[in-house]
Simulated assay, not measured.
Amino acid sequence: MDITYKLPHPVRVLSSEKLESEITQRDSFIYEALGDIELEHCSIDYLVSLVLEKAPKFVAYHKAQGMTDHNIGIAAASMLFPYKFRKLEGNILTTSNDVDGLLEQTDIGDDIPIAYLRPPFKNCYIEFTENRSSSLMIYNSDSGEHILEGVYISEVEILPNTPQMNQYQKNSSLSQIIDFEKPFRVVDMMFTGSPLGKSHVLDDALRIQGFYVQDDDKTVNDELKLIVAEYGNDDDFANDINYLELALSHMAKVLLFVNCKQYRDTAFNERKEILKKISSLKSPAKIKKYNNKLRKTYDRLIIKPEDNVVYVHTKNHEHSSGLRPKKAHWRKGHFRMQPYGLGSSKRKVIYIEPTVVGGIFAEKKSYNIRTK
């Protein structure tokens, strides 16, 4: 199989000379609309409003195709997520297959504040699994289910009495959850579905969603329920809300896991190595060869379990007499808040590993004692 199908979205859309040329033209159009605006301080909602305002031909073209204003905004946003990622040189993180599978079987405690739902970088792309082995899906109304591939994430703080805040004030639905006299933060997300098993490398699925956070004490689970309630009956999302619910939950688990720092990461700087190689070459033919290879490589951090333990759910724990202990059971991994500090006055989110608990067959975890 062509390796291009397994490349994450930010890399795949630039994986050939033809695609790179098309993206360059598209970026030029977006730049004409946005100019030298400070992208790192702008939410996707605000950038969309600027494009729709300053590029009337873009709106007219899509209206001629029979698209609604809402869908024209979605089309603009789907271009702006990768554009912002490229211009700000966003980071790519990859969850190892072990971590991703582990988190799919993990619960989020009802006491986890949304304050902990923060991306590790202000602008990044998280790739789920190293080989597209996720069991989660994203839906495309034209091509059906796609393997959940990853998500663009961008975090921005919106301040009162700014053009961005004024833009948000026009959204009547937000007035129920946002006090426009106070700052709030936006966590923008665009999920991508893999083209594996589809007709071509750009036959994928995209789904855009955001968190608007002003009350950091609100729990992650309450926010997820709010989104499902808000969009569950929306005609635009009628066929994919269940897919979105699972994708959002998984994304939240990944962010919590990274913020717990109960992992180890390994850097793969393939792109930097090739750029270094190109800088030392003089032959035009060799430079072209390595430039072609460059399009299909990327730098990333792979997130792995801290102790590299493989967690196995063994269903049959039986006594030698054939009796099954009633109290022994499998406990899924879960996140919870843990007291710490002087007088246990502080709280932090921690990850509790899955294990067999109770009974004489509960597995014991071994600890390696470090000596100075």
Rank of each mutant, 00 (worst) to 15 (best):
T4L: 10
T4F: 01
P10A: 03
E20L: 14
T24W: 09
E38P: 03
L47G: 01
F58Y: 15
A60Y: 10
K63C: 02
A64V: 05
A64Q: 12
G66L: 08
H70S: 11
I72T: 00
G73P: 07
L80F: 11
F81M: 10
E89Q: 15
I92A: 03
L93K: 08
D100V: 04
I108Y: 00
G109R: 03
R118Y: 04
N123K: 05
E127N: 12
S134N: 13
M137Y: 14
H146C: 05
I153W: 02
M165Y: 11
Q167D: 14
S172V: 09
E181A: 14
F184L: 10
K198A: 06
R207C: 08
Q209F: 10
Q209E: 15
V213Q: 07
V213L: 08
Q214V: 03
T219Q: 02
N221E: 08
E223W: 07
D234C: 11
E245W: 02
M251Q: 13
L256P: 00
C260Q: 10
R264L: 07
D265W: 06
A267F: 12
E270K: 09
E273H: 10
S279K: 11
K282D: 13
N292F: 05
N292R: 11
I302C: 07
P305V: 04
H313I: 04
H317C: 13
L323G: 07
K326Y: 06
A328L: 07
A328V: 06
W330V: 04
G333H: 07
Q338F: 11
K346Y: 12
Y351W: 12
